[in-house]
Amino acid sequence: MPLGDDHFFEIANTARRPVKASLRAPGAIPYYGANNIQDYVEGHTHDGEYVLIAEDGSASLENYSIQHVRGKFWANNHVHVVRGANGVDTRFLYHYLTTANFLPFLSSKGRAKLTKANLVQIAVPIPCPDDPEKSLAIQGEIVRILDSFAELTAELTAELTARKKQYTHYRDQLLSFPKPDAEVA
């Protein structure tokens, strides 16, 4: 289904509002731009579970900036704000979009940009679209597996980092030789 199908997806871009850094009132609400949280402010533009897709300014075109957010947040005009609707789990949408190839949908005039006209053309595979209950069950299982995999990946990465630090410590200890005495008799 294309992201523009308003039966399955909601695009909540109309509430986005940019605010210059000098005019932002400091607060506890995350202020999102194309590449994650830019600041913390008072007030919010959205409340709920959403996927934020960089409109322009993604740090990487091959690994496009996709964010999953829950709760109150402020979205500036550099992100598209999308969520699942009838029979589409927003977390499932997030996982799918993190693997999607955005290059064919980006405008090539100067700075790469994902216009709303191109955003609505991106197809998302929905299992059993005619049976929302079954579809949500399947999506839920996919989300559970991918979230578990992400958690295991984070644990393994932390373990690998600790092992590299340990290796460096012992290597440096083994390869450091005492300095000879300056005075030789």
Results as ranks from 00 to 15, higher is better:
7 H>I: 13
131 D>Q: 03
70 R>G: 10
185 A>T: 10
19 V>C: 09
11 I>K: 03
116 K>C: 09
156 L>V: 03
135 S>R: 02
9 F>C: 04
97 L>V: 04
39 D>L: 08
44 H>Y: 10
107 S>A: 12
46 H>W: 08
25 A>H: 13
6 D>R: 02
17 R>D: 12
18 P>N: 14
170 Y>C: 09
151 E>T: 03
113 K>S: 14
134 K>A: 15
38 Q>F: 06
100 A>V: 11
163 R>L: 15
78 H>V: 10
124 V>Q: 00
49 E>Y: 01
66 I>N: 05
176 S>F: 07
138 I>W: 03
174 L>E: 06
116 K>P: 09
113 K>V: 15
111 R>E: 15
37 I>L: 06
61 L>D: 15
146 L>W: 02
55 E>N: 09
30 P>T: 00
50 Y>G: 04
48 G>H: 01
120 V>I: 12
49 E>R: 00
184 V>N: 07
145 I>K: 01
94 Y>Q: 01
110 G>H: 07
104 P>W: 07
19 V>D: 06
132 P>W: 02
3 L>F: 00
42 E>G: 12
43 G>C: 05
107 S>H: 10
101 N>L: 15
115 T>D: 12
120 V>E: 13
89 D>E: 07
19 V>F: 06
144 R>H: 09
183 E>Y: 06
11 I>T: 06
61 L>N: 15
18 P>L: 09
62 E>R: 11
12 A>L: 10
169 H>Q: 12
108 S>P: 06
43 G>P: 06
77 N>W: 05
26 P>G: 09
19 V>G: 05
41 V>H: 03
56 D>P: 14
64 Y>P: 14
90 T>H: 00
49 E>T: 08
90 T>G: 00
21 A>C: 10
55 E>G: 12
6 D>V: 04
139 Q>G: 11
94 Y>F: 09
79 V>F: 08
24 R>E: 14
40 Y>C: 07
59 A>M: 15
14 T>K: 15
32 Y>E: 01
87 G>E: 00
130 D>H: 01
98 T>C: 05
106 L>I: 13
162 A>V: 07
18 P>A: 15
165 K>F: 08
26 P>K: 08
67 Q>H: 09
19 V>I: 13
13 N>T: 04
77 N>A: 09
144 R>L: 14
157 T>F: 01
118 N>V: 07
52 L>A: 03
131 D>P: 00
43 G>V: 07
29 I>K: 04
110 G>L: 12
170 Y>D: 10
33 G>E: 01
155 E>D: 11
109 K>I: 15
27 G>S: 06
7 H>T: 09
65 S>E: 08
90 T>S: 03
110 G>M: 12
64 Y>K: 06
66 I>R: 00
185 A>I: 13
99 T>I: 00
147 D>V: 06
25 A>K: 13
138 I>D: 07
184 V>F: 06
181 D>T: 12
159 E>R: 08
2 P>E: 09
57 G>E: 08
181 D>M: 12
80 H>C: 14
120 V>M: 11
87 G>C: 04
183 E>G: 11
85 A>P: 00
